[in-house]
């Protein structure tokens, strides 16, 4: 790691001003993406601004059919939350599929989506459920939030404070994990929501998470695995690497989406 200064602001307002005044500040929550990145010297921030002890950013709140997950809530907390499990079991299941238990004890939802790794799991849930990303400045719909490979709509001094999910009619996430890293080679999140069916795919796209609108339209008409049996996802913009070719990933999208539909019950 290159050298940096470490700051631990006590409030969101202090974190924003620390971020604004730092030469090249970087937020730190669980650090389970950032620290490995720094160890590889892929980034050189001047300051790490640790937001993990800001109480207002952490925790799970339920209001009717809305679940709000604070940005620094860990994967283990989401996985173990009775409230999440009863309202959106697919979200608790997904959190439990990330990394391993020790990683889930530190990694956070805000960190995951701010990083927008193309193989991360959470972007699948956030886009698949049509969630809303709440920041210190505004609210951003999932469709507007994920812009591409490691790119989001967040401004330089913008901090995610929470992610707001609406309870779907049903939802399921199915992940084909890369056997060594356990990142998703392909993950399909299927949700039947009041606004229609949403199918989000993570792990496969060169530009990160994306929706498969052709599948959504077919599933709106007939919510069954058969409805998408003949829909082929083009492999033009899919990742191709030693773990799987674009063609293989394209095939897996169909397989995982069908499993997710079956998993919706």
């Amino acid at each position: 790691m290159y050298e940096f200064d470490y700051q631990r602001p006590a409030s969101l307002a202090d974190a924003v001003s620390a971020l604004q005044s730092a030469e090249d500040g970087q937020l730190l929550a669980g650090g389970h993406t950032l620290l490995p990145t720094l160890k590889q010297r892929l980034a050189r921030p001047s300051d790490l601004i640790d937001i993990s002890s800001i109480g207002e950013l952490r925790g799970i709140a339920v209001d009717g059919d809305t679940i709000t997950v604070g940005a620094t809530t860990t994967h283990a907390e989401v996985e173990g939350s009775e409230a999440v499990r009863s309202a959106i079991p697919a979200l608790a299941d997904l959190a439990g599929m990330i990394g391993d238990p020790q990683v889930r004890h530190r990694g956070t939802i805000g960190g995951s989506i701010a990083n927008n790794d193309p193989a991360a799991d959470y972007p699948g849930a956030v886009l698949g459920l049509g969630a809303t990303v709440v920041t210190n400045k505004r609210e951003i719909t999932a469709d507007d939030f994920f812009l591409g490979l490691f790119e989001t709509a967040l401004a330089e001094d913008e901090i995610i404070t929470a992610v707001r999910f609406s309870k779907p009619e049903k939802a399921c996430y199915m992940k084909f994990a890369q056997p060594a890293s356990r990142f998703s080679l392909v993950g399909a999140f299927v949700a039947k929501t009041s606004g229609g069916v949403r199918v989000a795919v993570t792990g496969a796209g060169q530009e990160g998470v994306f929706r498969v609108t052709e599948m959504e339209a077919a599933l709106d008409a007939n919510f069954s695995a058969d409805a998408i049996a003949n829909i082929a996802v083009p492999d033009d913009n899919l990742n191709s690497d030693i773990h799987g070719s674009a063609e293989y990933r394209a095939h897996l999208i169909g397989v995982m989406a069908k499993r997710a539909i079956a998993g919706c019950g």
């Binding site: 470490y6 650090g31 620290l35 490995p36 283990a76 020790q102 990683v103 004890h105 530190r106």
Partner: peptide
């Protein structure tokens, strides 16, 4: 690289990988 778990310790009673915590 936070994969092997040889460095697991408990922070406030919870197991974590101490190679990936400052």
């Amino acid at each position: 690289t936070s994969q092997c778990g040889a460095c697991v310790v408990h922070i406030d009673g919870t197991s974590v990988k101490s190679c990936t915590v400052l």
